[in-house]
Design a protein around this nucleic acid. Sequence first.
DNA 1: TCTGGGGTCCTAGGACCC
DNA 2: TCTGGGGTCCTAGGACCC
Length: 431
Amino acid sequence: MNLEERFNFRVSPSDGWYALVDCNNFYCSCERVYNPSLKERPIVVLSNNDGCIIARSNEAKLLGIGMGEPYFKMKSILQKHKITAFSSNYELYGDLSHRVMETLRTITPYVEVYSVDEAFTFWPHRLKPTLDALRQFRERVIRWTGVPVSIGLAPTKTLAKVAAKVAKKRADGCYILEEPDEYLLQQVEVEDIWGVGRRYARKLRKIGVHDAAAFAKLPDDDWIRSQFTVVGLRTVYELRGISCLGLEMLEPERKGICHSRAFSQPITNYKEMREAFFTYLTRASTKLRSRGLYARAMQIWLQTNRFAEEPYYSNAAVVQFPVASQDFFEMSQYLEPMLQSIYTDGYRYKKIGILFLDLCNETGIQPDLFDNIPRTRNAALLNVMDRLNSRYGKLTVHAASCGKERPWEMRREKLSPVAPNWRQLAVVKAK
DNA sequence: TCTGGGGTCCTAGGACCC
DNA sequence: TCTGGGGTCCTAGGACCC
C-alpha cells in the first residue's frame, strides 16, 4: 500500500533537490548593511517595545547572549561587553528581504519565500547544482544585497534545513547533504529538527529518541502517526530522504490578518483605551487594504499584564459584518459597542489586538440589499489616506478617534537612524 | 519600571441531519 | 426495556513555524 492511501498524505510529485537559502542573523545583518562600522562588532536587535532580544550577531552569541532574553535583565551585561542594541525596524528588514528574494529569482524561477529570512529553491535532478555553483549563488546575494547567507542542498526540505545548519559553520557557507547521512543526523538534536517543537522533543526524549537519526529509524509508522499526527510522520519520511513537502511558489491566501501589540505603559482609563483601539483598527485595516482583502468578521481583545502580580483579566468580542469590508469608517461603528462590552474599569491593561477573519478578495463580496454605507466614497477617501501615510509615514493622516498624544505607544529608543524605505528617504532629502 | 508579534495546520469532540 | 450508524460542519485546543 502506498503512503497516500495509508496515511493520507502525498509524496512530492517533483523529485529533485531543495536548497535552503538562509540569511545569517538576518536582523543584525540588516543593521550592518546600513552601518558597516558595526561589522565584526557584537550587536543585538530587540523586539517591539524593546522587550527582549530577538536577534544576535555571532559575536554576541559567543559572549553568551541568549535568544529571547528580556532586555531589562541583560542591560548591564550588554554594557559590560560593549554590545550595541537596536530597536527592531521591520520596514527596513522587509525591504532588504525583498531584495534578497529578487536576487534569488535572477538565479532560478523556482523560489519559495518561506519567511522573511529564508527561501527554498528547487532543482530537478539534471540541474542539480555543484558545490561550486552554490558558492557562486551565495556570492551574488552578498554582493548585491550586503546580506550574508548560508545555503544547504539536500533531497528533501527537512534535510535541506539540516544542510543549511552545517553550511553556517563552514567558511564557504555552503553544504550539500547527498543522502540521509547516519553519522551527521546523529549530531542533530531532536529539538533542532524542523517540525519538532518543545513538546514533541520532550516526548521523543522520554522514549529514548535523542537525535534525528534515531527519529528517522523508528520502526512503526502507524505509531508515529498516532503520536505525532501526520505532520510528524511527514517529518520522519523527509529525514529518511523521501520528499513529502513540495515547493510552494504561490503565496497561500491568508486566512486571518491580525494586529496586536503590548503598550509601553499600561492603560487604565476608557478614553485612552478607545483611542488605542481606533489606532490599532487604523493599522489593521490598512494592512487589509494593502493586500486587497475584505473581512467578513472582526475580533477584538484586551488583556492585562500576564507577568505582573496583579489580578489577570482578559476579554474578547466578535462581530460579523453584513458585507465583507475593508472600510475603516464602517468598522469604526462596530468597534465602540464591542469595546464597551468587554472593557471593565479598574484594571491596568497591557495589550490589545484586532483580528480579521473570514477573508475574501473583491470578487468574493456578497452585496446586501439594505446596505446604506457610502462605500465608494469611503474607499476613495481611504485610498488617499493610505497613499499619504505610505509616503510621509504611518498615521500622518488619521481619524480624530485615534487621539493625539498616544503615551502608550511602542517604545523604540534604540532605533537606528535610517529612513525605513526609499520613498521616505526621498522625503527626508527633500526637506 | 521593563518579559514580541503574526501566522498555519491537525485532531477530537459536539451538534445536527437522515 | 430497547439506546443504530454514518455523514458533515464547526469549534476549541494543541502543536508547530519564523
